[in-house]
Design a protein around this nucleic acid. Structure first.
Length: 376
RNA sequence: GGGUAGGUGGCGGAGUGGUCAAUCGCAGCAGACUGUAAAUCUGUCGUCCUUCGGACUUCGGGGGUUCGAAUCCCUCCCUGCCCA
């Protein structure tokens, strides 16, 4: 058993995920350490913020520095100094963000994803098998199969084809996974977890088709693939709930790339357990800070707000970013100081802001777990 | 003292008779960001008016030429560089 739910049968799920690097209470959030670093922040600081697991990226580490080097370094944990569980995304998102959004950057074929490297333009082939091999070389604890996400405005026939390709990729991935486990001598207790990713875009029947095919392969967990918002930014509540309902309730559900704090709460309420997103770090680097509205519970819609710290109004604001936050930034510095650090482009600004937002996300997950008695 | 290059919007710096309220960069102001091509990108950026629009005042100062001047002429002021 890799995941155990404490409140069986309920939609909002509280459980424990067991990985070979230890167990984690769900729901939980993983900051993205795409290139084996949570941009600008030390692993120790991430840990102190209450984060237990990270996400690294197969495609990016494959390109640089290469999985062989990381293997020689003793694996990605040792390489980046992170003891806790690490999940690697497969490069499937890059199929979407690089190839589908910029067709000149590559193409997806039946064989796999053919990328034009973002570093030097050279051709890089990522087959489902290769993606798995790389993840084994990285030495991560949770793996994701290569998938083929499509934009939500893609026509149904295109999404159907992507679903079937994702299914085919998943089959090959599973086969390669079993082969690798055997070859590397992993036991049931030491093997990394493998996640399949449900595609199907905005079409319920395609989500069903995808989930059904994947579930037949018995993955350790399933991901919500593609995007959960439409072109206007509306949350696709029905698709998110529907997709969760298609999955077995005995395994963890991973909402890939989710999301804003509000979206995470929505996903959780729809039955999802694991999250990762670039928002806390990227938006932190861009000067947007998450702040609690402390009179409200997280089940209400406006439980937080964001402030753009570079705005003029904070020039002489000597209060803390969030008086209820226990991060380095909030306990020791003022809004005016952080604004100043951004204005003079000091790297410290990026670090403090990222760390604060990560702490906000970690605290959000704590509150999701703590405030369960308030669930209706 | 002689020569020479120049003085343009907060700064740097284009433009050298109309299409110039004036390219562009920086700074400023605001917005975006969801499995990271992101310390990035977008908008705005003389003043005033509610606007896709309009009005007004600008290119060192003053005067002039012209239907029309940041651009041409005269004059004054100022700065850099070179020679004494």
């Amino acid at each position: 058993m890799k995941w155990q739910q404490k409140n069986k049968g309920e939609k909002r799920r509280y459980g424990t995920l067991f990985t070979r690097k230890g167990s984690i209470s769900t729901p939980f959030f993983m900051p993205d350490a795409t290139r084996a670093a949570v941009r600008g922040v030390l692993p120790q600081e991430i840990r102190s913020a209450g984060i237990e697991a990270l996400v690294v990226n197969t495609y990016h580490l494959f390109l640089q520095p290469g999985e062989t080097l990381i293997a020689r370094a003793g694996g990605v944990h040792q390489f980046m100094d992170w003891d806790g569980p690490i999940l690697s995304d497969s490069g499937g998102y890059q199929v979407y963000s690089l190839i589908h959004r910029h067709p000149e950057m590559g193409r997806v074929t039946e064989e796999g994803a053919e990328f034009k490297s973002v570093l030097d333009g050279s051709k890089k082939m990522l087959t489902p098998e290769r993606a798995l091999q790389i993840q084994f070389d990285l030495g991560v604890d949770m793996m994701v199969v290569l998938d083929d996400p499509r934009p939500n405005d893609a026509p149904e026939n295109e999404v159907l084809a992507a679903v079937d390709r994702t299914t085919m990729f998943a089959e090959r991935s599973k086969k390669e996974y079993d082969r690798q486990c055997q070859q590397r001598g992993f036991t049931e207790a030491t093997r990394p977890l493998l996640f399949g990713v449900v595609q199907g875009g905005v079409f319920p029947d395609l989500r069903e088709r995808s989930a059904k095919a994947l579930c037949a392969m018995s993955f350790d967990g399933y991901g919500f693939g593609g995007r959960h918002i439409d072109g206007e930014g509306n949350f696709l509540e029905d698709i998110v709930s529907h997709t969760a309902s298609l999955l077995p309730d005995t395994v963890p559900r991973f909402a890939l790339g989710v999301g804003t704090p509000k979206d995470i709460v929505r996903f959780f309420s729809a039955g999802w357990d694991m999250f990762d997103c670039v928002i806390p770090t990227r938006e932190g680097r861009h000067g947007r800070l998450f702040v609690w509205k402390d009179t409200l519970t997280i089940w209400e819609d406006d439980f937080y707000e964001t402030i753009n710290i570079t705005n003029e109004q904070y020039t002489e604001d000597f209060s803390s970013i969030d008086s209820t936050c226990d991060c380095e930034l909030c306990t020791r510095h003022t809004r005016a100081y952080l604004r100043h650090l951004f204005k003079v482009s000091d790297p410290l600004a990026l670090r403090l802001a990222s760390l604060h937002n990560v702490r906000f996300y970690a605290r959000l997950m704590e509150r999701l777990r703590e405030e369960k008695e308030n669930t209706a």
